[in-house]
Simulated scan of single mutants.
Amino acid sequence: MTLDPNAFLAIMAMATATVLTRVAGLVLIRFVAIGPQQKRALEAIPPAVLMAVIAPTALATGPAESLAALATALAATRLPLLAAVAAGVFVVAIARALIGA
């Protein structure tokens, strides 16, 4: 197996950009006052990202996955993110067992 120097440099550049972005966010947030509206907006990001990840699967596959996506979306409005994902996994497992998909 050979390592292409250009690919290696691209990977290192992307890793550096990712780390710098995260560190800059942690440093800069200390100088920003977060009000109630900003806090609500920040809390809405994880469920929004979760739905963006699972929506294509829900729309491109069968009814069990669609039910699981709906259950995950509903759970994400009230539960922590990990619990919402667990609810979706549980629903898809039960729906596949019942529907036979």
Results as ranks from 00 to 15, higher is better:
T2C: 12
T2A: 11
L3Q: 13
L3D: 11
P5R: 13
N6I: 06
A7Q: 11
A7E: 08
F8Q: 05
L9I: 10
L9Y: 06
A10D: 10
A10Y: 05
M12T: 11
A13M: 03
M14N: 07
M14E: 03
M14H: 05
A17K: 02
A17T: 09
A17W: 01
T18F: 04
L20C: 03
T21Q: 06
T21S: 07
R22Q: 13
V23W: 13
V23H: 05
A24S: 14
G25Q: 02
L26S: 08
L26R: 15
L26E: 01
L28Y: 05
I29L: 09
I29F: 01
R30Y: 05
R30A: 06
R30L: 07
F31Q: 08
V32W: 00
V32C: 00
A33C: 04
A33Q: 03
A33H: 04
A33L: 03
P36Y: 04
P36W: 01
Q37K: 15
Q38C: 03
Q38K: 11
K39R: 12
R40F: 00
V49T: 03
V49Y: 00
L50Y: 06
M51V: 12
A52D: 04
V53A: 12
I54S: 07
I54K: 12
A55P: 02
A55H: 06
P56W: 08
P56Q: 02
T57E: 06
A58L: 04
A58E: 09
L59F: 09
G62H: 12
G62M: 01
A64C: 10
A64G: 14
E65H: 15
E65Q: 15
S66T: 13
S66K: 13
L67G: 13
A68K: 12
A69G: 15
A69R: 10
A69C: 14
L70N: 09
A75W: 05
T77H: 06
R78C: 01
L79W: 10
P80C: 00
P80F: 00
L81E: 01
L82F: 14
A86E: 14
V89N: 07
V89C: 09
V91A: 08
V91C: 02
V92N: 03
V92M: 04
I94V: 12
I94N: 12
A95L: 08
A95K: 04
R96P: 00
A97K: 09
L98W: 03
I99D: 02
I99T: 10
G100Y: 04
G100V: 11
G100D: 10
A101S: 14
A101F: 15
A101E: 12
